[in-house]
Design a protein around this nucleic acid. Structure first.
Length: 102
DNA sequence: AGTATGACATATA
DNA sequence: ATATATGCCATAC
């Protein structure tokens, strides 16, 4: 599913789990990503926590990596979190907030 | 089997 | 905003 996350957006573990027919399996997603970290080809950097915070400590190399990748994907990382209201994948209000049909 | 921990989420104070 | 508590599923000891 992570493969389905559009470029320039981020999805929370819970959202991904839900889309994968796995409600309450957010941690499973995290676990899978951790396992995949060994040989990953997935856009893991587009996966953040429900509140937009990156899953790593702000001083962690992974945090920096993810933040860098996200910024490269046009996603602004404010301090230690991303604006889910703007870059959130499931968010559809974006269309009205940032892409008004008018 | 029971306890502890984890790239998590939600509720409450 | 942070701290706690509970739920959740899978692993590790």
């Amino acid at each position: 599913m992570i493969l389905a996350i559009p470029r320039g957006r981020v999805a929370s573990y819970g959202e991904i789990a839900a889309r994968a027919d796995l409600p309450r399996r957010a941690r499973l997603v995290g676990r899978v990503l951790r396992e995949a970290g060994e040989d990953m080809t997935l856009p893991w950097h587009r996966v953040v926590r429900a509140d937009g915070c990156l899953a790593f400590a702000p001083d962690s190399a992974e945090f920096i990596e993810q933040r860098l990748r996200l910024s490269r994907e046009n996603v602004e990382v404010r301090g230690r979190r991303v604006d889910m209201d703007r870059f959130g994948w499931q968010r559809d209000l974006d269309a009205e907030l940032w892409a008004p049909d008018a």
